[in-house]
């Protein structure tokens, strides 16, 4: 497939996306809570970074802040989101919109809500070319058909006239991917892209994402709660808990020898290696409400290593081996592997 105006990376080793100290506040009926608290990570082109965590940990909120699609009840209160050398948080809305598509793009979880139900899908996919590249309706349509072919929609010329509800869940997810990569973004964010799909279709979509990422040398940020998807698909992982990053590093290292008791707890909870008839080593309790995160370490109530210092002093991210960081005072006690 020929692409015009392929954006040049700003430098070979520079990150395509660099998020630093991101903070997001969320207004709730009970007052303002901090949903994302000082999250930093960066990802280069061709690499995949996973944001891993359970519901309410702030991973989706982080993704939405990066692409500038936060709910009005949420507000970025600090940090920087750098792409191509500029901090998107300091750009005007109009300048920012110019980045949406050619630089930063997102694939959502729920394809049916993400698509316009009353517009043929071909026109929705082609819209990016009309707005950003000024192509004619006919030219945009041809581009859309080309993209639909690439993502594996059968009979794309005919199907371009169909509406979202006329596609299966897997096909809709393919349409969303087509739309997201239309303008060859440097960075593609995928927010739980396969959660709503059946296992065999999930595998197809993950493969498509991988192939397209390789073809276009994109940076991929994968937002997920699925440890196995991270293990199979990501190079680096950022593990979030109650709005903060608790551990960060190359997936292989983190999963083989975690340096945070929460990571360890998550890995132990996977029934994959469990023996039938023996209890799973579950993490007790559940994550704290954002309005009631305890002072000190947010994980203290569920942690097997907890002691007085954890209640008193909030752990900050610190180096823990090559390319790795942890936010645990006593991470060294986990290095039994």
């Amino acid at each position: 497939m020929t692409r015009t105006a392929a954006p040049a990376p700003t430098g070979t080793d520079d990150p395509a996306l660099d998020v630093e100290g991101l903070c997001v506040d969320l207004s709730t009926p009970l007052g303002t809570v901090r949903a994302v608290d000082g999250v930093s990570f960066s990802v280069r082109r061709g690499r995949t970074l996973a944001l891993l965590g359970e519901s309410g940990c702030g991973k989706s909120m982080t993704a939405l802040s990066v692409v500038g699609l936060l709910d009005p009840a949420a507000r970025v209160t600090g940090g920087a989101v750098r792409v191509r050398g500029s901090d998107t948080l300091r750009l005007s809305p109009a300048e920012r919109r110019k980045l949406a598509g050619p630089v930063l793009s997102i694939v959502f979880q729920d394809a049916l809500t993400a698509l316009n139900p009353v517009q043929p899908v071909g026109r929705q996919i082609g819209e990016a070319f009309r707005i950003h590249r000024g192509l004619s309706r006919r030219e945009a349509r041809e581009k859309a058909i080309e993209l639909m072919t690439r993502v594996g929609i059968p009979e794309p010329r005919e199907r371009a006239r169909s509406y979202p509800h006329q596609f299966s869940g897997g096909m809709r997810q393919r349409l969303l991917i087509a739309m997201a990569v239309a303008l060859d973004p440097d960075v593609l964010i995928a927010d739980e892209p396969t959660t709503a799909l059946d296992v065999t279709v999930q595998a197809q979509i993950m493969r498509l994402l991988r192939d397209i990422q390789n073809e276009r040398d994109m940076a991929l940020v994968l937002i997920t709660h699925d440890l196995a998807v991270v293990a199979q698909r990501a190079d680096d992982v950022v593990i979030m808990y109650a709005g903060t990053v608790v551990e960060k590093g190359p997936v292989r290292d983190v999963f083989s020898a975690p340096r945070h008791p929460y990571t360890q707890g998550l890995l132990d909870s996977v029934p994959e290696h469990a023996v039938r008839g023996r209890p799973l080593p579950a993490v007790p309790g559940s994550p704290p409400e954002l309005s009631a995160v305890p002072p000190g370490c947010a994980f203290q109530d569920r942690c097997p290593l907890v002691r007085e210092r954890c209640v008193r002093e909030r752990p900050v991210l610190r180096p823990a081996g090559e390319g790795r960081t942890t936010a645990c005072h006593f991470a060294e006690e986990l290095t039994h592997a």
Binding site: S168, G170, M171, D198, V199, T200, V201, Q202, A203, Q204, M206, R207, D226, L227, A228, V229, A231, Q232, R233, V251, R252, F255, L267, V270, E272, H273
Partner: peptide, 22 residues
């Protein structure tokens, strides 16, 4: 098709690709 935690068994090596959907 179900992804597994064991990263040494990458999906690509062992996956039987099913065509199409149900």
């Amino acid at each position: 098709a179900a992804p597994v935690l064991d990263a040494s068994r990458t999906t690509a090596d062992r996956e039987i690709q099913l065509q199409g959907e149900i």
